[in-house]
Write a protein that binds this DNA or RNA. Structure first.
Lengths: 200, 200, 200, 200
DNA sequence: TATGAATGAGGATTCATTCAT
DNA sequence: AATGAATGAATCCTCATTCAT
């Protein structure tokens, strides 16, 4: 009996997810209220719950949508390309995502910091698999003498840490850097670091 | 008229702060409940509120206690020492803190991610000042040709990111690394990275 | 964006105010509980708070509604009328209000006795202004030799005291007068007193 | 086994009653807290409860102490004296008490307005008896043609109302009279009123 | 006599969710 | 598809009172 989503349904679901991202990323799952999300979405609370059955449902929908978006760059890493450039390119894409989608980064960070109760399975499943594969590629590059020796897991963690930091700790970064735009110089720094670490 | 804290007061305040750290670091300020903290502290809720006037008071006390602890290593950085070794030593101490006090790291991360409503002033004040001073030291080292050129702010951010990541994203790290202890190999990796980035 | 109140809203707001008057007038602001008001209104507590955001809001709404009602007779005093009859008529209307709306009188008395924390501004503003104007009328009547000399402020206080007493100290009055209806004889007494005090 | 009260007991009981009067008269029974009373008394809360077994006990003690003080002037009314002067003297003593012990007046008013749950018996007992006796005296004076005809109960109520008003509605009186001292002119007014009402 | 510590019973308010229309 | 109305289950905090010393 389920009908395909109508246009208005799709639109409202999108609106709600956008509002949910805004609110959940700032206040966390518990800290956020459906009222806030409804307000941000410009919908009444019951109407919002007409599209998503619960607060949790919105949050979960956000998380999985986000994961896909977030893992894409790693999947795009090309084992046939030039190692340093590939890794550099990956890091830069991640940094750009921190700049362009900081709320997603924060939502994810919030979830992980709190123990990842709603995302642990994905981490141990899809994510681990993807990282394992990438690690093999890195190991192969190292073995082939195309980059300096490096622990592949920690290299990946480092890239995540170095790029997501600018989204997740945005307040702190800006408190210290004042009016300067962090991202421009961050990209230069990131490139310098990666080249020094990897280039033979 | 205020008397010095009695022994039992000191003990209970410590117990409460410990419990608060446990609970707040996992659930964030809003997500945590006084009940949880009281439970973790082994006290009744009103008794807990006998020692701290409000949920907020516990949280604030934790934050400021934490900040002091957390900033100490940066203050210890010695401009007269060997640059690479000083920075490396700083980074290692930070990593050790992530290993030994991951809850503190997460509490802080939670606060920052959510916009730092209760800590913004400190960031823009004391923290910025400290970072500014350290940056000057780094700049001086660069100018003296003792380390490779590097953006001092971003170098500091990088160390924070690379070390705190292991506490804040612990769940993710362990999901990927499985049974392996992350910290041992992380320290090696960290040393490698820093040496390659900074050593002339 | 605010729509006009629906019928059910108006009804429930009225029901709540009625219940609030009942409860607050007997127990005072602090002594009353939202539970009592909800019970008296036949609503659940959260539903009551759906219509008024807080206990204070109900109380404040009552106070200002009451003030308007309560000051009206004084505004109706006609400087062109016969002085004694005007004042007498005013006093009688006030007495009738004490008989017909004793709860309002008590609510007001409670507020004032406790220092008028939520009504002080109105007293010093609108009320004082109104009393000042009335005083001028009384003074003019005295100056014209149409009533015996009398201190206008105290005359007004006297009328308030003599009439409100029957509402505010109702319990005491009835303890002494037993089964007799206080108000009938009170009106005669009030008329006698005012005529003797004012008639030339 | 009960020992006679020691000096320190008497002193502390007095201190507590004084503090209780202060607090209860302003906030009412429910609105006041033992903490406030203890604070005002300069005692610790448990120590205060060492002298009075409960909040209620303090309040009740205050009420009965107050009643005695408050009824005394009426008892002093001398049937052998000059009627107008006797009544006038009574009214003035009452007004003086409103000036000198406004807190007692307010405590009593609070209790009565709230239905006199802790004092109803006294009202219907001792107070009624006293008022009945005084009424007979007034009736006798009227019958003897020594004062104008007047309803004795209402005359007494009037005196209570006219005098207590200045204590109970102090805030309102001062809001209207500004810097002027109310009591001086009030006494003149009171005398004028009573003479006009009663003098043959 | 005095007080630091502890608690059970509230009491105001919030919030996710459901109901009725 | 939308919303006004309603509610049970928290959740923070208060307060009179008791306990232990």
């Amino acid at each position: 009996m389920k009908k395909a989503d109508t246009r208005i349904q799709k639109k409202n679901q999108a609106v709600i997810l956008k509002a949910g991202l805004e609110v959940f990323s700032q206040y966390g799952f518990r800290g956020a209220t459906i009222d806030q999300v409804a307000e941000a979405a410009g919908l009444s609370k019951p109407n919002l719950l007409y599209y998503f059955p619960s607060k949790e449902a919105i949050y979960t929908a956000l998380l999985s949508q986000l994961l896909e978006h977030w893992l894409e760059p790693l999947k795009a890493l090309d084992r046939e390309g030039d190692p340093v450039e590939e890794i550099l390119s990956y890091a830069k894409r991640k940094l750009a995502m921190s700049r362009d989608y900081p709320q997603e980064s924060r939502l994810f960070a919030n979830e992980i910091i709190q123990g990842g109760p709603r995302i642990g399975d994905v981490l141990r499943g899809e994510l681990k698999e993807l990282v394992d594969e990438t690690s093999k590629v890195i190991d192969a590059w190292v073995a082939a003498g195309r980059i300096k020796p490096v622990h592949p897991y920690h290299l990946i963690f480092s890239i995540w840490a170095l790029t997501q930091h600018y989204a997740d700790f945005d307040v702190q970064v800006r408190a210290i850097m004042g009016d300067q735009d962090p991202f421009e110089s961050a990209e230069d720094h990131l490139e310098v670091v990666i080249r020094r670490v990897l280039t033979i």
